[in-house]
């Protein structure tokens, strides 16, 4: 497994754990969440800060374990896999943006719209990383 593939796994797990927790809390708050803007803004900062710390730590540990791989430049296969993952995430983003636009049109509040946009970004990132891991595993 390459350094990049390991980093993709770390990213995927960190995103699923961090944002999974955030959205679970949001769903648990249900209809009352609209009065908790500051609470969820703080939670979001905590999740993003946690992700930065976890990914930095993961990168350092993996770089120490395999320094030559960590310093290797992106090769043509890495670049193609990256493009393929971005391709699928992009079209998900386009469809999602239209969906959020429609939701705004039908009168959903700013809090819901913002969280839907955040959820869409998390979904797209999960698809991007997930496709890349799949292609690294299955071959490309």
């Amino acid at each position: 497994m390459t350094f990049r593939e390991k980093m993709h796994w770390a990213s995927l797990l960190a995103i699923l754990a961090g944002f999974g927790w955030y959205f679970a809390m949001l769903l648990a708050a249900g209809g009352d969440a609209s009065g908790l803007h500051d609470y969820f803004a703080g939670l979001l900062v905590l999740v993003i800060g946690g992700l930065i710390v976890v990914m930095t730590f993961a990168a350092i540990v993996m770089a120490i374990a395999a320094p030559s791989e960590a310093s290797a430049s992106v090769d043509e296969r890495d670049a193609q896999i990256h493009m393929r993952g971005t391709f699928y995430a992009y079209y998900t983003l386009v469809v999602g943006i239209w969906g959020i636009g429609l939701a705004a049109h039908f009168g959903f509040g700013l809090f819901i719209i913002l969280n839907a946009a955040l959820g869409l970004l998390v979904l797209c990132e999960t698809i991007r990383i997930g496709v890349q891991i799949y292609l690294y595993r299955r071959g490309y």
Binding site: T2, E69, S73, D75, E76, R77, D78, Y136, G139, Y140
Partner: peptide, 25 residues
């Protein structure tokens, strides 16, 4: 891989027919 500027994993993928290299590679 080092001689042509790709990773060991890319060479392994080419050998196994899992990846088609660019014309340059």
């Amino acid at each position: 891989g080092e001689k042509i500027g790709v990773t060991r994993q890319t060479i392994a993928a080419i050998e196994q027919g899992k990846y088609s290299p660019t014309l340059e590679a």
